[in-house]
Design a protein around this nucleic acid. Sequence first.
DNA 1: CCAATATTTCAGAAAATTCTGAAATTTCGG
DNA 2: CCGAAATTTCAGAATTTTCTGAAATATTGG
Lengths: 194, 194
Amino acid sequence: MNLPPLVQTFVLHFGEMGSRWGINRTVGQIYALLYLSKEPLNAEDIVERLGVSRSNVSMGLKELQAWNLVRLQHKPSDRRDYFSTPDDIWQIVRTLVEERKKREIDPTMTLLREVLMQEPASAEERHAQDRMREMHDLFELLTGWYADVQRLDTERLVQLLTLGSKVQKILEMKDRLFVVPGSKKSRRDDAKEK
Amino acid sequence: MNLPPLVQTFVLHFGEMGSRWGINRTVGQIYALLYLSKEPLNAEDIVERLGVSRSNVSMGLKELQAWNLVRLQHKPSDRRDYFSTPDDIWQIVRTLVEERKKREIDPTMTLLREVLMQEPASAEERHAQDRMREMHDLFELLTGWYADVQRLDTERLVQLLTLGSKVQKILEMKDRLFVVPGSKKSRRDDAKEK
DNA sequence: CCAATATTTCAGAAAATTCTGAAATTTCGG
DNA sequence: CCGAAATTTCAGAATTTTCTGAAATATTGG
């Protein structure tokens, strides 16, 4: 491995971290390297810096492309493929969340919907189905939130995140200001009192 | 594997899904089984239903305990260990997020902080450090948001998630209502115009 | 077109992980 | 305490994943 120490530390860490995700060491290292690099890199650059085989890099890049995590580009009068990550880190986050949802949540939701259609044949199955329904509803809530928030432009997203749970305070304020006292909606807070 | 079809479908799916996480098939299956089960199960129960070795179950349960994902309990006049998942699915989510943060984010933040202290020895290292700083700041924002939201009770958390980006609307409303026109704070929206 | 260059594919080697059975250790009722 | 029951440990077998080198395929400047 042929990298400045500071870069190497990061690349090695991401290689190890990859295993905690569904990603292998080389893929993690390639991504880390591209993320830190100012200039786009071609496959041979990556081979030299990471010290892995050309074919391994080829497969790694293919996987990263399948994840939409790298951008392929070309330099004038150079037929080699150059790869880079988006400059905007928020774009990276959005892609990551999107792709993980696609691979992990969506198939699970499909399965849950299927299983929830079936008729339980025993008390045991009935209970299992109830549990699956809880999970289904939870995922629905989370993905709904995500679908909503994902549309915000970055500035507003950051604003929202910075606010954190302080939003809650504003909600309470809103409730107090705009809900007609005695109406159905305003009873929520009363309920807490009991 | 000796399970009602509906349960088996879910257990097999979670087994496969486990690989996408850092968790192995058996651990995924054990967790799925416990999640669906009304009654706590002992190790031998799990062996029978999943058809894996006793030692494999032992190691799987140990791992799930390390993740705080299962609860160990005992039945009167039975010395065997019985395992279950929390009834409250939100408790499960909280634990999962907490543990993943502990294993993935925290070590990465430690590394980033260390590397950001060092003096870059070249333009390349300087750029790499800038990129790492972006990541560091991003994680700080996200974990800050999480730390904040994590404290909410479930009812309010659900409320917040249901609202999604509509929060934004309320924020704008708040701005319009309470910010003194011409003050520093009220200029945020003006900036967007240019 | 074609030859040089670039990239991908893929079979099998290497490495890592998962799983098992047997043995060791722990626990606790009597 | 003892011994039966329960659990854990662990060496190595089985399986899966990762990685490589060689060969095949694709691309493009001239």
